[in-house]
Simulated scan of single mutants.
Amino acid sequence: MPQIQRTPLADQAADLLLDRIRSGEWELGQKLPGETTLAPQLGVGRSTVREAIRQLAGRGVLATRQGSGVFVTALDVPEDWDAVLRRADIVSIIEARIAIESEAAALAAERRTAADVRAIRRALDARAVATASLEEHVDADTAFHRSIVVAAHNPILLELFDGLTPRLRQAMIEMLRIRAGFGGTADHARHVLLSDTVAAHDARAAAAESRAHLSELKGALS
């Protein structure tokens, strides 16, 4: 077993444990050996092992279960979300939108309040007149789709949508530049239909309309 050569010891111990997890020594959900076993393997004291485990637990790789031990909960440190989004291509972003927004549309149709419908209609009207620039149109379009996600009353879906928004805005601007146009009567009609299905409590139609609309955007890139 490689041993630690320099400080900080807890950081080095955490790195060595993470390397062993990445190499497949322990599988997802598997229990790690106890501190008395790991400490001599790593060449550190038990308190250093405990600190290393705390570090990896904070990074989502390990979890301590009271009275049971320490278990592997991820096989690597999750990559920074912003870095993933910056690297993602337009198709990947649209596919993520399909997953988030089609479910959000269905939930919005089931859960929307009268206030939600009014907010969706206002966003729809604002989208219809946001034609001065491509950027203005994309921002108004994003606000409309966000109003539907808000109406789903699911904070996780809303957080995912908001997390996508900066990269989504960039991707949509890039895509519409490729298409050399935005808006139009047919496009607006699709958004009217989506808002109508949500207002009508038609969850199946809302999900289908959201998926169809975004799938058309994806298809336009291929």
Rank of each mutant, 00 (worst) to 15 (best):
Q3C: 01
Q3D: 01
Q5F: 12
R6N: 14
T7H: 09
A10T: 07
Q12A: 15
A13K: 02
D15L: 10
L17N: 04
R20D: 14
S23G: 11
G29S: 05
E35C: 10
T37W: 06
L38F: 00
Q41T: 00
Q41L: 08
Q41W: 03
G43Q: 05
V44L: 06
V44P: 06
G45Q: 11
T48N: 02
R50T: 00
Q55T: 10
A57C: 12
G60I: 09
T64D: 10
V72N: 01
D76F: 08
V77D: 02
P78W: 03
E79K: 13
D82F: 04
A88K: 09
A88Q: 11
I90M: 06
I93C: 02
R97L: 05
I100N: 12
S102H: 07
A105M: 09
L107R: 06
A109C: 07
A115L: 09
D116F: 01
D116M: 00
V117W: 07
V117H: 03
V117L: 11
R118W: 13
A119G: 08
A130D: 13
T131F: 12
T131P: 07
A132M: 12
S133G: 06
L134P: 09
E135I: 06
E136I: 07
V138W: 00
D139M: 09
A140W: 02
D141L: 07
D141Q: 07
D141W: 04
S147Y: 00
N154R: 11
I156H: 15
L164P: 04
T165V: 15
Q170N: 01
Q170S: 08
A171S: 05
I173F: 04
R177I: 00
R179K: 14
F182N: 12
F182T: 14
G184V: 15
T185S: 15
A189S: 13
H191E: 10
H191I: 08
V192N: 06
L194H: 04
D196E: 15
V198K: 04
A199L: 03
A203G: 10
A207H: 07
A207R: 07
E209C: 13
R211K: 11
A212W: 07
A212L: 05
S215M: 09
L221T: 08
L221G: 09
